[in-house]
Design a protein around this nucleic acid. Sequence first.
DNA 1: GATGAATCTTGACATATATCAAGAAAAAAT
DNA 2: ATTTTTTCTTGATATATGTCAAGATTCATC
Lengths: 192, 192
Amino acid sequence: MFELLIKSIQEKVPSTEEELHLCKTYFTPKRLRRKQFLLQEGDVCNRMAFVEKGALYSYTTDAKGGQRVMQFAFEGFWISDLYSFFTREESKLNIEALEDCELLLLDHEQHDYLLKNVRQYETYIRILYQNAYVALQQRLEVTIGLTAEEKYSHLVDQYSTIVNRVPQHLIASYLGITPETLSRIRKQIASR
Amino acid sequence: MFELLIKSIQEKVPSTEEELHLCKTYFTPKRLRRKQFLLQEGDVCNRMAFVEKGALYSYTTDAKGGQRVMQFAFEGFWISDLYSFFTREESKLNIEALEDCELLLLDHEQHDYLLKNVRQYETYIRILYQNAYVALQQRLEVTIGLTAEEKYSHLVDQYSTIVNRVPQHLIASYLGITPETLSRIRKQIASR
DNA sequence: GATGAATCTTGACATATATCAAGAAAAAAT
DNA sequence: ATTTTTTCTTGATATATGTCAAGATTCATC
């Protein structure tokens, strides 16, 4: 149950077996069925989730009731609404399971405790943010700079997991285009 | 020269006068004239810059030679190409002074040293990333989710500093629209 | 394996935004 | 102050992408 988390920590902050073993005590395992929610808009996000198995995605709902996909998370990734998690304000995000999931949850209190008392945890989190920030910056570049087709090609090249495991209309939303446009782009690419 | 930096640290990580005073020894002050570069694409980004005075912006250059503005930085902000800074790969970003600047530079070695040896510095950086990540996520929401006019209005509401101190064509690029479109939007807003 | 739900495709048409071009206005440099 | 450079505006036109609607597939569940 903790294999991937331990691997993720080990990669970033070399630690002893004991230390790694200890960290287990702070996390709560949780199973989630496809279509179940980890977070619903209006609630305060009180935890971060590490994905041991399965897939989830987060999205906002716009004025006309449409989804705007913000993030996908697969095995080995974290997902949460960090804005709500830190500010303690109501979240505007929904986090929903795309597939049946096995998660490890860390709640706000435990996160704070670990930050204060376990130096390695703070280092781990710092590196996590560092990577997340850089990845988000690249996504922004792609989103602003490329045409719909280029965005999709980039996704296929760089994040084939997403393309393989996620329904097309959610990919379209993630790229900021309509499902119809994505369908046409795929047709065009296929015909070459 | 160090007022804003010390304020920024103090806000996030309460420290004694001595500790704060000590941190000065790691930074190198640098002046930059309007239009001068802090970083040019092709170089490896070897430092992070804290802005004590003035304004800078970072941008990429696309295939047709057009600028794509990624970030603006004013007094109290940090600017760098974190991707290049961490990976030690060549940067695709340019960082240019919009106004004459007074900067405090921290190079890669010193950053590493401080992370390892000064717990408070790691905490400061962690909080910095945390905030930067959340801000970037919000920018992405705005960029994907809103029309050109809504994006501009949001900028006027939330980041009036940018609107006041930055030429319009750079704002357009930052929003991912053309200068012509921005000009028309402003005209329309003004006529109401 | 049948039934209903979710997802994807395709066409016709609408629209927001881009592009190109040229002149006006403002700002910087001499 | 004058000149040069940069920035902003406006019009005409082009284009990528969105919207609406309907049928075709595919997938999930009993």
